[in-house]
């Protein structure tokens, strides 16, 4: 299996695409540092007990005027080590992004398969729903779902459930591209003779959709998933920036940027800059990787 992959045209092309290689390395470094944050980060920024307000607003690589402590990337208003905060924030961003994409993908692929294979009024219903949703910016949809969910939750659960609600809101706002693509490929695949052969031996619709058609429509899904992952990370940051996402006690990249923005004009530039650069690097790298995947997996563009 591994050998087959290493010998594939896909891997071969990958080694010869500098943009894809660099993007992949950036993503890999960011993911690894997020996963192993507790070993890399000097402090735990989510632990209120470790915060020393006196350390607030320390510039990068300068000794704090009260405590004399030095921080790699400086500290925020609460005296949080920014480097640690970014690593932990990255973790939340990546987790929310990954879960949201998974939700959007499962939902979109299932609905697309059903719409494409069953057709008729069900197809109409699903695709019109998609059309309606596409007329609104997805961030608006996410905010709407977020607002409704928050309203339904009892107040004591709001903080606890914030991340879950965030995932569901972003996930539900991004299923449409998956559904549309899968529906299109499904309509092509279902006319092929291997599907007729499966019908001849009495397989039911679900068996045909899942066992026969699904594996053949997943190629483009991978590309959309990558690009949607970048979108989801930005959506998470946007929601957190607007103050409706991750709680301030467990700041994500977006929360950090929101905090930094308050202090930008009073000279504490680093609080905004470092989280923003990290977010940018992550989103850009994932996006470039997605673009490369799309070009490589689509033979028509070759």
């Amino acid at each position: 299996m591994m050998n087959r992959f290493l010998d594939s045209d896909f891997f071969h092309d990958f080694l010869r695409a500098p943009v894809a290689l660099i993007s992949f390395c950036v993503v890999l470094i960011l993911v690894l540092s997020a996963v192993f944050a507790q070993f890399i980060a000097p402090t735990n920024p989510f632990d209120p007990a470790s915060l020393e307000l006196m350390n607030g607003f320390t510039p990068p690589l300068e000794a704090n005027m009260f405590t004399g402590e030095i921080f790699l990337l400086g500290t925020d208003d609460q005296g949080r080590d920014l480097f640690s905060a970014i690593l932990y924030g990255l973790r939340i961003s990546l987790f929310v992004g990954l879960m949201a994409v998974t939700l959007a993908m499962v939902l979109g692929v299932m609905l697309g398969l059903i719409a494409g294979y069953v057709g008729g009024w069900l197809d109409n219903l699903i695709m019109r729903l998609a059309d309606i949703q596409m007329t609104f910016p997805s961030i608006l949809i996410a905010m709407l779902i977020f607002g409704i969910a928050r309203g339904l939750l009892p107040p004591e659960l709001r903080y606890e459930m914030a991340i879950t609600v965030l995932i569901i809101s972003i996930g539900l706002s991004e299923w449409v591209p998956f559904a549309r693509t899968v529906r299109g490929s499904t309509m092509v695949e279902k006319e092929k003779e291997y599907v007729a052969a499966a019908r001849l031996i009495g397989l039911n619709r679900w068996q045909i959709m899942i066992r026969h058609i699904l594996p053949n429509v997943l190629g483009p899904v991978l590309v959309i998933a990558t690009i949607t992952f970048a979108l989801a990370i930005i959506a998470e940051a946007t929601l957190s920036f607007l103050g409706v996402g991750a709680p301030p006690t467990e700041p994500s990249l977006g929360t950090l940027i929101r905090v930094g923005q308050d202090y930008l004009f009073s000279g504490e530039w680093w609080i905004l800059l470092f989280p923003a650069v990290t977010l940018l690097a992550l989103a850009l790298a994932v996006n470039l990787l997605g673009d490369w995947l799309r070009d490589t997996l689509n033979p028509r563009l070759k």
């Binding site: 003779e193 007729a196 031996i201 594996p215 053949n216």
Partner: peptide, 23 residues
């Protein structure tokens, strides 16, 4: 119906589209 259908099978025109490429 299925038992009857088993007794009548088909060979298709396209050597490419009639076999699931992922199987």
């Amino acid at each position: 119906q299925l038992a009857l259908r088993r007794r009548i099978q088909m060979v298709f025109q396209s050597p490419y589209a009639s076999l699931n490429p992922r199987w």
